[in-house]
């Protein structure tokens, strides 16, 4: 925190008064407001996660993470991400190809539909699958008689996660590919490349950093999703508990240190995501739509 506190003072020296800048006092006040707000609302919650995770010592921390229920939660979270992220990646590329490389009727409407999951509560995202596959639905009894488990099992959790993370890759790729236009592809095709060759050797290298960026955000949300997964999971310990759900269970059992120990893994994942995201923006900012203000 110390370097943050003196930062405003340093800023005075480097920036002389200018007619299109604020007075030093106003500048100091604005920076102080921003720093305090960010420290209280963003930094403290992050710090307390790690503080609480080790509140009962390293031994308790290691013991919690080594418990079979924790390990199975980690495994399930990785499994669900491994199913949902690649599916949304393929969808994102396909949708962006169709939307960015062609002009067709109803395009704007299609983009709106792709954004739809962002404006639906996570709880409702889970609810729609309960209504579709649950006991009261048309499909429910049929699934039951055929022994197919979707709700309260991995397929349901994966579906809810796919729903919630649906737009991430597509949203990143569509503006990026629209900006890049079709010139490169047309050149490749006119030189005799096939459609797939054009995609693999021309388009994919052009969009790789943007794609990675979208996948990064998609993955962070997939591993951290709570509301939607909570509705379809059934909270069966050791079986259908993802890491965020396991955090909730431990917390509600008054095992705060245990809950924060698992939470610290998720927080570490969030930090890694933020660092990678920032590095991508710094190095390949020109090849990422999100960092260009789309």
């Amino acid at each position: 925190m110390a370097d943050v506190a003196i930062a405003p003072l340093l800023a005075f020296k480097s920036q002389a008064a200018s007619p299109i800048s604020e007075k030093p006092v106003a500048r100091f006040v604005l920076m102080a407001i921003a720093f305090v707000f960010m420290a209280v609302f963003l930094l403290l919650p992050l710090i307390i996660v790690f503080d609480q995770a080790f509140s009962k010592g390293l031994e308790h921390f290691v013991k919690t993470l080594g418990e079979p229920d924790t390990l199975s939660a980690v495994r399930l979270t990785l499994t669900v991400a491994a199913i949902s992220v690649p599916l949304n990646l393929v969808f994102g590329v396909a949708a962006a190809w169709a939307i960015a490389k062609f002009e067709f009727k109803g395009k704007a409407f299609l983009i709106t539909l792709i954004d739809l999951p962002f404006s639906v509560s996570p709880v409702i995202s889970g609810l729609v699958y309960v209504l579709l596959f649950g006991a009261g639905s048309a499909l429910g009894p049929w699934l039951k008689s055929h022994g197919i488990e979707i709700l309260f099992a991995v397929p349901g959790i994966a579906l809810a996660t796919i729903f919630v993370t649906f737009p991430f890759v597509a949203r990143e790729l569509i503006p990026l590919m629209q900006d890049q236009g079709t010139g490169d592809e047309e050149a490749a095709l006119s030189l005799g490349a096939s459609g797939w060759q054009t995609f693999w050797y021309v388009t994919l290298p052009n969009i790789r950093w943007g794609l990675l960026y979208g996948v990064l955000l998609c993955n962070a949300r997939a591993m951290g999703e709570f509301g939607a997964v909570s509705v379809v999971s059934g909270h069966i310990r050791g079986l259908t508990n993802t890491m965020p759900l396991h955090v909730e269970i431990l917390y509600n059992e008054y095992n705060a240190a245990g809950a924060f120990a698992v939470a610290s893994l998720l927080a570490a994942l969030a930090l890694v995501t933020l660092v990678l995201k920032t590095l991508l923006e710094m190095r390949y900012g020109d090849n990422i739509a999100a960092s260009r203000g789309h």
């Binding site: 963003l42 705060a256 998720l266």
Partner: peptide, 16 residues
């Protein structure tokens, strides 16, 4: 750090 709420799972934010 502004993007922390995007990246931090909501349950973690909740208990913190």
């Amino acid at each position: 750090m502004v993007d922390l709420p995007f990246a931090l799972p909501t349950a973690v934010a909740g208990i913190a």
